[in-house]
């Protein structure tokens, strides 16, 4: 979903750049609280994994492909603030070293693929976690649900930006239908990759998974209660 230069006009790109800068500033503050001895080692891994996996476009039919965005994956593994920082580093490297995503569109790409997927992915993860049984085995499915919906929501956010500052006058309804349609399919791939990545780390070291902490804390309390 990397937006190139030229799809959105200059004022819109300046505005998304400002929103991205504010988002990163908030994330820098929040990440200082998240980055403890368990989160810090995983941050590098999450960023490299997202970067590497984004190179692998998977087919979704009709001559179209998609790749992981990674918001839910990063937020659940290292926390939403650190997760956004990891993704932002990925988008900057992609833009400057690999010409993937426009330079004036860097703020747009950080907003759509970073901020939107992290916020939506993390919020849906927390809601799903509250509904599902409080077990470590439920962390990966909850992350997958956040991942599944974060992609079509990000595509809808692009349509919103296009409505404000799109370069070519086209039917917004048709654009929204097409974007949400194809990105719902890409969301299934996003959910699958997120499930596997979060599930494998949660299986061996649940204590390293940021999103598993409430479940682990509760389990410890139950065990302490039973011991009395």
């Amino acid at each position: 979903m990397h937006v190139p230069d030229g799809f959105l006009d200059a004022p819109t790109s300046v505005a998304t750049g400002a929103v991205a800068a504010v988002g990163i500033a908030i994330a820098l503050r929040g990440a200082r609280r998240e980055l403890d001895d368990r989160t810090a080692p995983l941050a590098g891994l999450v960023a490299t994994f997202v970067f590497a996996t984004q190179m692998i476009n998977f087919p979704v039919g009709a001559g179209t492909s998609g790749h992981l965005l990674g918001g839910a994956l990063a937020a659940v593994l290292v926390g939403p603030y650190t997760g956004l920082l990891c993704l932002s580093v990925v988008f900057v490297v992609q833009c400057l070293l690999f010409a993937d995503g426009g330079i004036t569109a860097l703020g747009t790409n950080i907003l759509l693929m970073g901020i939107v997927t992290v916020v939506v992915g993390w919020a849906l993860f927390k809601i799903t976690q509250a509904v599902l049984p409080k077990r470590v085995s439920m962390v990966a499915p909850a992350a997958a649900i956040g991942a599944l919906l974060s992609v079509p929501v990000a595509s809808l956010a692009f349509v919103g930006l296009y409505a404000v500052g799109g370069s070519v006058d086209i039917s917004l309804g048709a654009l929204a239908t097409a974007m949400v349609g194809v990105h719902t399919l890409i969301g299934i791939g996003e959910a699958l990759i997120t499930f596997l990545a979060v599930g494998s780390i949660a299986a061996v070291r649940p204590d390293l998974v940021y999103g598993a902490r409430p479940v682990l804390a509760q389990r410890t309390l139950v065990l302490k209660g039973a011991a009395r």
Partner: peptide, 30 residues
């Protein structure tokens, strides 16, 4: 793994082609 990546356009690129705004996009060199 990247050798086996799909070469098809991604979701946004395909939609931009189908809906007539692909030509508005410009690329830079990396």
């Amino acid at each position: 793994g990247s050798r086996y990546a799909s070469g098809d356009p991604d979701g946004l690129t395909k939609v931009s082609q189908d809906h007539g705004f692909a030509s508005a996009g410009t690329s830079h060199d990396g």
